[in-house]
Nucleic acid binder design. Sequence first.
DNA 1: GTACGTGCAAAGGTTTTGCATTACA
DNA 2: TGTAATGCAAAACCTTTGCACGTAC
Lengths: 137, 137
Amino acid sequence: MNKYKELGLKSTPQRLSILAFLEGNTCHPTAEEVYRHASKKFSTMSFATVYKTLETLKQQGCLQEVTIDPEKRHFDPNTERHQHIMCTKCKKIADVFVTFDLTLPEKDVQGFQITGSHVEFYGLCPKCKGEGTMQKR
Amino acid sequence: MNKYKELGLKSTPQRLSILAFLEGNTCHPTAEEVYRHASKKFSTMSFATVYKTLETLKQQGCLQEVTIDPEKRHFDPNTERHQHIMCTKCKKIADVFVTFDLTLPEKDVQGFQITGSHVEFYGLCPKCKGEGTMQKR
DNA sequence: GTACGTGCAAAGGTTTTGCATTACA
DNA sequence: TGTAATGCAAAACCTTTGCACGTAC
């Protein structure tokens, strides 16, 4: 009994390979990366299958979309509440497991009924930080 | 002496109309919306000009990109530090002018040198909230 | 056996690019 | 007048869709 069956979905080798790649993956892959990995195992794997599967998993709440990078859509199999940090140079995204009190004063919610929040941090990753100005001899 | 000249850029009527549409605009328009507006004044306005101008303004720090909506890229002429809230139903984005202490403990930054942060709130806007379940008679 | 999933190819949408023309400074 | 911006069309992406075929259950 795997995750797909638990959800009442058909379990196929293609779907299983996509899930296997995602589970425990903290690299926040793009659809293209999921496709690249899955097509190593299934040479006939198509983007249609990848996108449809990602969308299905998202609908089922097994997958989140990370919006921190304006250039690309990234997916995150960790659906627990957590934050992200992105390197503005190499675009690497890491998880941040710190919780904040993000309650908004009534006067600032503008009538919205708030259901969630997410914090994005920007900065330089250890690698890019070092390469910074190349002043080190 | 307008903003473009101050930045050492050429001032053109097309660029001025784009800036005029953006300045003070709190609707977080997409490139398409900027184009639609600007092409009313300039029937020859092209997407190329819109995108190039938006990119230029972004480079100059006169414009931010809002990443809250995974489906569309939105632009925000307000470059002061502020947060956003998006209606998950109608995708409307509003500004939130509340500041939070988002300092990360050293052990959680994973060697990153943090340069900024942004909070995204999700919820239902006043309009969509009311339409919720249609149970009202 | 049947409904659902796959995979191809085509379409749709968005953003970028090359290049000739135009216009600002 | 020289340089930078415009605007067209084409290309490059990324994502979705339709449909015939295949497969899990």
